[in-house]
């Protein structure tokens, strides 16, 4: 393990020198450092910046501090009542111990997962651009079916991010060039030719909060995660959904998929296909298919297409 310097950030506009990275709960970064995959020179601990409040926003939303622990956010009574999909997604992730450490921003910013990326001795375009992607021909059972590139087929592992993407959450960012906001759906990138970049954040930019806008019908929302064992495993498929039905017809819907892409996959095409349609199994199937026509599965992950399709139907039927 590489030697590094540790220090505590004292204010949000702290800045970050080259080779430095922010440390929050450490549940992903520290693992990657132990594996030799992340090799920062400096860790700047941002857990003492006081970003650990969940505050009401005027107009009904919530401002979730970047440092709010996953277990605290999952237990928040407002979240459980008004956005149950978010609480369910959080509780589906990791283990109790990890959720006690992991933060809201840290969860969003965990690196994509792939067995080659997690092994510093393997070629990987994320380790070293141009070194190649062994996953396309090798092990890719749990890798992407949507939005992947020749350079990278990794998936983003967060459950929470899938719910936040469905809920149109917005990330508050503070950086050397000032403050800006980015929707969660645009925070993570597709790999393209530059898979080494997981997100649109520039060096030194710090997420300070995530704003959760009001969405009345999110009170009827759910997260369903499928994994290879009953607990403590990353998703092989997941769906976050909220739906509003009036007189048997879908008036509005939010839908996002997990474990299918380099980012939480907001299913805009499926949503569009559903609005105004009868809230029936056939409509749900058609909507899922509309979204999944873009899927380009590899040799061993085609099952994810059927799995995601079934999850859409199952979750939407359960909600409507």
């Amino acid at each position: 393990m590489k030697t590094f310097t540790y220090r505590t950030a004292t204010d949000v506009a702290h800045g970050l020198e080259p080779g430095a990275t922010f440390l929050a709960g450490g549940t992903n970064l520290v693992d990657l450092m132990k594996l030799g995959v992340a090799t920062p020179d400096v860790l700047v601990d941002v857990t003492r910046l006081g970003l650990d409040e969940v505050a009401d926003l005027p107009g009904g939303g919530l401002r979730i501090g970047a440092g709010v622990r996953n277990s605290d956010l999952a237990a928040d009574s407002r979240v459980r009542r008004d956005w149950p999909v978010l609480s369910q997604a959080l509780l589906a992730g990791a283990s109790g111990q990890l959720r006690n450490m992991a933060t809201t921003a840290g969860n969003l910013l965990q690196r994509t997962r792939c067995r080659y990326f997690m092994d510093a001795t393997m070629p990987c375009n994320k380790h070293e651009p141009g070194s190649g992607c062994p996953a396309r021909e090798g092990d890719h059972r749990n890798l992407a079916i949507l939005g992947a590139s020749e350079a990278c087929v990794a998936t983003h592992p967060s459950d929470m991010a899938v719910a936040l993407a469905a809920l149109d959450a917005v990330v508050q960012i503070s950086g050397p060039a000032g403050e800006r906001t980015v929707p969660v759906t645009e925070l993570h990138r597709l790999p393209g030719d530059t898979p080494e970049r997981d997100t649109v954040l520039e060096h030194g930019e710090l997420i300070t909060a995530v704003d959760l806008p009001p969405l009345g019908f999110a009170a009827r929302s759910a997260y369903r995660k499928v994994r290879d064992r009953a607990s403590y495993a990353f998703a092989v498929g997941s769906v976050a959904a909220a739906i509003q039905v009036d007189a048997g017809a879908v008036t509005d819907v939010r839908l996002a998929f997990g474990a299918v892409a380099h980012k939480p996959w907001r299913a805009y095409t499926a949503e569009e296909a559903l609005r105004g349609r009868p809230a029936t199994r056939e409509s749900f199937l058609d909507a899922a298919d509309a979204e999944l026509t873009a899927a380009r599965p590899l040799r061993d992950n085609a099952f994810k297409v059927a799995l995601t399709r079934n999850l859409v139907v199952s979750v939407l039927e359960g909600l409507s």
Partner: peptide, 16 residues
């Protein structure tokens, strides 16, 4: 073998 830790080599957990 490309899965060589207990995060990727799954054994049953309590919930199983």
């Amino acid at each position: 073998w490309v899965n060589h830790d207990l995060a990727e080599y799954h054994i049953p957990v309590h919930a199983d």
